[in-house]
C-alpha cells in the first residue's frame, strides 16, 4: 500500500502543470465543494427515500382504497381517520395490529439477544489463533453471505411437515415429539421464524465483533496476563468492556433490521404469515396489498416509524448516558 502511495504523486506531477492551472481556475470555492460532492447522494436519497416517505405520510391521511389508486390525489381526506382505526384496539383491525406488534416485539428481543449471544461467543472464542481458524471464520459467514431467498426457502423445505429435515430429526431420529408437528402454520411458526432469523443474523454480529476485537491493543492482554488474570477474567475485564462501542451500534442495527424484517417471513411462509408469526411489516403489507387499503397501511407504517424513532432516540440517550458515567 505504501509503495502505491509513494509511486503515485510523482507520476501524477509529470503531466500536471498545464492541467493544474486550468483546474485551479475552474475549481469551485472550497466552501461549495463538499456540497457538490454530496449532491449525488442527496438527490438519490431524496428521490427514493425522503420524498416517497413524505408522500407516504400524506397518504396516511387519505382514504386511499382501490377506487382511487389510479389517481391517488383525488382520494378524499380523512384526517386522523386511518390512525383512529389503527389504534382502536377493541375493533378487529386495531386488535390485529396490536397482536402483530407484540409478536414483533417478542420476536425482535429474542432474535437480537440470541444473535448477539452467538456472535459474541464465536468472536471471543476465535480471537486467539488456532489451526483452522480462518476456515471457521469463512464457514460462520456463510449464512450471512447466502442470498436471503435461497437460504430461507431451504429452511422452508427443512420445516416441511411430512418431508422436512426438522421433523425427521425430532420425530424419527430423536423421538422427542409424539407426532409430526406443523412448523410453518400454527403456534410453532414463531419458533421456526425465530430460528431462521437467528441463523441469518448471528454471523453479522460475529463479523462486527471480530472486527471490533482487532482494535483491542494486545498489550492490554499481556499486562493482564502478567498480573495473573486467567483467560475468563481477561474476557470479562478486557474483551467485553472494549467491545461496548461496537455493541452500541450493533445492537441498534440488529434491532432495526429485525423489527422491519420482511424478507424472512415473506419467503418462509409464502406471502401470508400465520398469526403466531405475524410480524408488523408483513401485517402492513397484507393490509395494504391484499385488502387494497393503502391509506390504512400507510397510517400503520407511520405509527411503526414513530415507534422505531422513539426507541432509537431512547436507546441512544440511554447508552450515551452510560458511556459518560463509566
Amino acid at each position: 500500500m505504501t509503495a502505491i502511495l509513494e509511486r503515485r504523486p510523482p507520476g501524477g506531477t509529470a503531466d500536471r502543470p498545464p492541467r493544474g492551472t486550468l483546474r485551479s481556475r475552474l475549481r469551485p470555492r472550497r466552501g461549495a465543494l463538499p456540497y457538490l460532492l454530496l449532491v449525488p447522494a442527496l438527490v438519490l436519497e431524496l428521490l427514493v427515500h425522503l420524498i416517497p416517505m413524505v408522500v407516504g405520510v400524506v397518504m396516511s391521511f387519505k382514504q386511499l382504497t382501490q377506487f382511487f389508486i389510479r389517481d391517488w390525489g383525488s382520494a378524499p381526506w380523512t384526517g386522523l381517520g386511518n390512525y383512529r382505526v389503527a389504534v382502536d384496539f377493541h375493533a378487529a383491525i386495531g386488535s390485529a395490529l396490536l397482536h402483530s406488534f407484540w409478536v414483533t416485539c417478542a420476536f425482535t428481543v429474542l432474535s437480537v439477544g440470541l444473535s448477539w449471544l452467538l456472535g459474541t461467543a464465536a468472536a471471543v472464542l476465535t480471537q486467539d489463533p488456532f489451526r483452522g481458524r480462518g476456515l471457521l471464520r469463512g464457514v460462520f459467514l456463510v449464512p450471512y453471505a447466502l442470498p436471503v431467498y435461497a437460504a430461507v426457502i431451504t429452511w422452508a423445505f427443512m420445516f416441511q411437515q411430512d418431508n422436512g429435515l426438522v421433523n425427521h430429526v425430532l420425530h424419527d431420529q430423536l423421538h422427542l415429539t409424539s407426532g409430526r408437528p406443523f412448523w410453518l402454520i400454527g403456534p410453532h411458526s414463531f419458533v421456526a421464524l425465530l430460528t431462521v432469523s437467528v441463523w441469518r443474523n448471528w454471523p453479522f454480529a460475529f463479523l462486527c465483533l471480530t472486527a471490533g476485537l482487532q482494535n483491542i491493543p494486545r498489550e492490554l492482554y499481556e499486562a493482564a496476563a502478567m498480573d495473573g488474570a486467567g483467560i475468563w477474567q481477561r474476557v470479562r475485564r478486557i474483551t467485553l468492556p472494549s467491545l461496548r462501542p461496537v455493541n452500541q451500534v450493533l445492537v441498534l442495527v440488529l434491532f432495526l433490521w429485525t423489527f422491519n424484517d420482511f424478507n424472512t417471513p415473506y419467503v418462509l411462509f409464502g406471502g401470508s404469515a400465520p398469526p403466531a408469526a405475524d410480524l408488523v411489516s408483513i401485517h402492513i403489507y397484507q393490509s395494504s396489498f391484499v385488502n387494497w387499503n393503502f391509506g390504512s397501511g400507510s397510517a400503520m407504517s407511520v405509527l411503526l416509524l414513530l415507534f422505531l424513532l422513539l426507541v432509537t432516540a431512547g436507546y441512544l440517550v440511554a447508552t450515551r448516558g452510560r458511556d459518560t458515567d463509566g
Binding site: G31, P34, Y35, L38, A41, L42, E45, L47, V48, H49, L50, I51, P52, M53, V55, G56, M59, W72, V253, L256, N260, F262, V280, S281, I284, Y285, S288, F294, G297, S298, S301, V302, L304, L305, L308, L309, T312
Partner: peptide, 30 residues
C-alpha cells in the same frame, strides 16, 4: 467541516430505519 454535515449524516443514516413498506407504494407511484 461544513454547515449541515451532521444533519446530512443523521438524515442519511436514519433512512436505514424506514420500514420498506412505508415507501414502497409511494415510490411505485412516483
Amino acid at each position: 467541516r461544513f454547515r449541515g454535515r451532521r444533519l446530512f449524516t443523521i438524515t442519511v443514516l436514519s433512512t436505514q430505519m424506514f420500514p420498506g413498506i412505508l415507501f414502497l407504494l409511494p415510490l411505485f407511484l412516483l
